[in-house]
Computed example of a mutant assay.
Amino acid sequence: MAMVEKGLGIGILPELVLRGQQFNIRLIEHKEQYRSLGIVVNSIKQVSPATKRFLDYVQRYQKL
């Protein structure tokens, strides 16, 4: 944010990061936002139940 304030570029940050910041910058909201997510596991057969559930959720969401 300091570099953006000095005119050295742009930044793309989540809104939560920007809350309460005192920088002299202009915020522009983008309506359509996408993020790529990469997930790597050693063995799908050996992941914890919580990890398996998360992977199932991500795969279902990706197909929407």
Rank of each mutant, 00 (worst) to 15 (best):
P14D: 07
L64D: 14
L37H: 02
V40E: 15
P49G: 00
R19G: 08
L18Q: 00
L37I: 15
V47T: 06
N24W: 01
L16W: 00
S48G: 06
L18S: 05
P14F: 04
V40A: 14
G7V: 04
Q22G: 13
Q59K: 15
V40K: 15
Y61G: 07
E5F: 03
Q62I: 12
L18H: 03
M1D: 10
K63L: 13
P14T: 13
A2R: 01
R60G: 03
E5L: 06
K63P: 03
R53H: 08
L55S: 05
G9M: 02
P14N: 07
N42T: 06
E5D: 05
Q21Y: 01
I44G: 08
V4F: 02
F54M: 14
F23N: 12
Q59P: 06
I10V: 09
V41R: 09
V4E: 02
E32S: 07
K45W: 10
F54V: 12
D56N: 11
I44Y: 13
A50M: 08
Y34T: 14
R19H: 04
G20Y: 06
V17Q: 07
V4R: 02
R35L: 11
S48A: 01
Q22T: 14
V4L: 04
K63N: 14
E29S: 09
M1C: 10
G11W: 00
V17K: 03
Q33K: 10
G7Q: 00
G20Q: 00
K6E: 07
M1A: 13
S43W: 00
F23Q: 10
P49Q: 05
G9Y: 02
L55H: 05
L55Q: 04
G9L: 00
V17P: 05
I25Y: 05
E15L: 00
Y61K: 15
P14R: 03
V41T: 10
K31V: 10
E5P: 00
E15Y: 01
G9C: 01
K52L: 06
L18T: 12
G20N: 01
Q22F: 08
V47I: 08
E5G: 07
F23M: 05
S43A: 03
Q22N: 15
H30P: 08
L55P: 05
R53W: 04
I39P: 11
K63I: 10
I10S: 03
T51D: 05
Y34H: 09
Q46D: 11
